[in-house]
Amino acid sequence: METNHEESISPQGMSRKKFLWIGALFAFTATVKASKVDGGLAVIENKKAPKRATPIVPPGALSHRNFSKHCTGCQLCVSACPNQVLRPSPGLVSLLQPEMSYERGYCRPECTRCSHVCPAGAIRPITRAEKSATQIGHAVWVKENCVVTRDGVHCGNCARHCPVGAIQMVPSDAKNERSPKFPVIDPERCIGCGACENLCPSRPSSAIYVEGNQMHRIV
């Protein structure tokens, strides 16, 4: 069952937090073992949207201000979005202006559809190349939720899927190459596409999520 290629941490000098973490690892392994039968699919919990201090708006929208000023709530972009990123917003306050979130998909690198259907100038036309250099937000890591901490397993799914290579997996112990690896985000490279947030295995709350940028930046 022991398949973690990384060394476990020695009990000496272990902080209380680490101790709990290893306890959690054992509890996790034990449940898997006790119920080991062949086949079946693990239940997948739905994801909960994080509380974002600044809402995210699609590439081409320029800024949150520009978007809310021009969007007429026509929902054309919502029906154009192939990745279930845009959805009608629930509140009346937002005047039916769509909301962008990454529970069901992320803003994929090849897509610029919403920017081409928006009739109101809320999302301006943008090319794929321009999009790949437009920072609509930046990723934030939440250590307690990360499965590397929580389940004591390898992960790095965020780093593997970042289209601009803004995430690096770094050994938690500088002196030990094989210690568990945590994601480190380069905010200057991150474009806020949400691949990491969407593909993070931590549920219901992702351990990495995108905070919107007030104003989009070009890198």
Partner: peptide
Amino acid sequence: PKLRQANHCIGCGKCVP
């Protein structure tokens, strides 16, 4: 289903043995 596809494999290795 999308959530059970390869991009959600985190590479934990538990399945390997």
